[in-house]
Design a protein around this nucleic acid. Structure first.
Lengths: 100, 100
DNA sequence: TTTATAGTTTTATATTTATCAAACAATGAT
DNA sequence: ATCATTGTTTGATAAATATAAAACTATAAA
């Protein structure tokens, strides 16, 4: 018998709440939606072209997503590439990404 | 061919974002979770017994949920009963409630 | 080595949010 | 009629949030 089924880990609920918080903002919603739909990592600049927000605001939102564990970032040269942690999100909130 | 599939209605996305916002707060998360798990309407007092928050804070959160279209309220005498709009939520975000 | 580019951090600001006490309905009970 | 109960609204407050300009860091290009 799995303890988690009886008393779900606080951090699981916390992660879900952070995902919900992230998706409650129009900018972050679009970022996540776009990352999910393209199905692969995207450069910050590329994202910035599709989602119209100031680059510092974009950086702020990407930081929010990263720190919540929703995305991961890879640096190459002076560019950064953002990936959506699909598996992690699907594990806790199956089907959510598909319904955005 | 369904237009909605090509360009999802703004209000659909807005509703989803409101649901996400609602669920990003621990208090509201518990309220929604509880309503979903019991599977039927609950009195405000009954809710207050399970979710430990000040009655005016509870009223504030219930108003937030109500105005977002997430719950509905029925008055009987001096008590009020809250229902979760399961069908509506399931329509836009299938499976979400089950994964809370 | 100077300059341009990509993105972050800092600073400042306005807005939104959560919380609770206190005052306020509205209805039921005595 | 008076009192008690249920829940809402108002007002005040502290904290969190979103935004963007400006300064900054790091790398690439000239």
């Amino acid at each position: 018998m799995n303890i988690k089924q009886l008393s779900p880990d606080v951090s699981e609920t916390e992660f879900k709440q952070q995902v919900f918080f992230a998706l409650s903002d129009p900018g972050r919603y679009k970022i996540v939606q776009m990352l999910y739909n393209v199905g692969h990592e995207m450069g910050c600049g590329e994202l910035n072209q599709h989602v119209e927000i100031d680059k510092s605001t974009m950086s702020y939102h990407l930081k929010t997503l990263r720190e919540a564990g929703i995305t991961s970032t890879r640096t190459q040269g002076r560019e950064k590439y953002v990936t959506l942690n699909v598996a992690k999100i699907e594990l806790e909130l199956p089907g959510l990404l598909a319904s955005l």
